[in-house]
């Protein structure tokens, strides 16, 4: 996720929607901005978007659950996304995932108790040349081994 400078004030959800002229066609952009504002897409946020765009909330929820980068549940400080595409799979992504599960004590889709990490799976990150790969936040890590994963996690401690 792009880092915002602290001097730039956050826009409100209402402002974001107004900038898009309440156009249902801009739903995806609005959801992305809403997530940036609120951290995740709560029921209240999705209902507000539905009301402002005059569309059923089921559609908002359907789009929000379709994209792995949108979250309908609160997430940890750092989101770890492990690539599960075939090239990474062949190069041992399963071991990477097992290591993460073991070290963090969570399954994909879950957040650690200290709210520090959320573990997720993702489709191709586009860095097949350095498979297996994962992202933490917007930082990409490649050529992973279980050992390297443990080292990387330490830097977030």
């Amino acid at each position: 996720m792009p880092v915002k400078s602290s001097t730039e004030p956050k826009k409100s959800l209402r402002q974001v929607i107004a900038e898009h002229n309440s156009d249902p066609g801009a739903l995806l952009d609005i959801l992305r901005d809403a997530q940036e504002i609120h951290g995740y897409l709560s029921a209240a946020v999705m209902e507000e978007i539905a009301d402002e765009l005059d569309i059923p909330v089921s559609r908002v929820y359907g789009v929000a659950t379709f994209y792995t980068l949108l979250a309908t549940k609160p997430k940890g400080e750092h989101i770890i996304r492990v690539c599960e595409s075939p090239p990474c799979h062949i190069r041992g992504a399963v071991n990477i995932l097992e290591t993460l599960k073991e070290v963090l004590g969570v399954n994909p889709g879950e957040t650690t108790e200290d709210k520090k990490f959320t573990l997720e799976l993702t489709s191709c990150l586009g860095v097949c040349g350095v498979a297996p790969a994962m992202m933490i936040g917007d930082q990409v890590y490649g050529n992973l081994t279980p050992e390297r994963v443990k080292e990387i996690l330490k830097t977030y401690a």
């Binding site: 569309i55 059923p56 089921s58 559609r59 359907g62 659950t65 379709f66 994209y67 792995t68």
Partner: peptide, 15 residues
């Protein structure tokens, strides 16, 4: 549900 009735109670969820 959406187009004919304008209710929108159901929609595809997840992927």
């Amino acid at each position: 549900c959406h187009q004919v009735q304008g209710v929108g109670a159901l929609y595809p969820v997840n992927r």
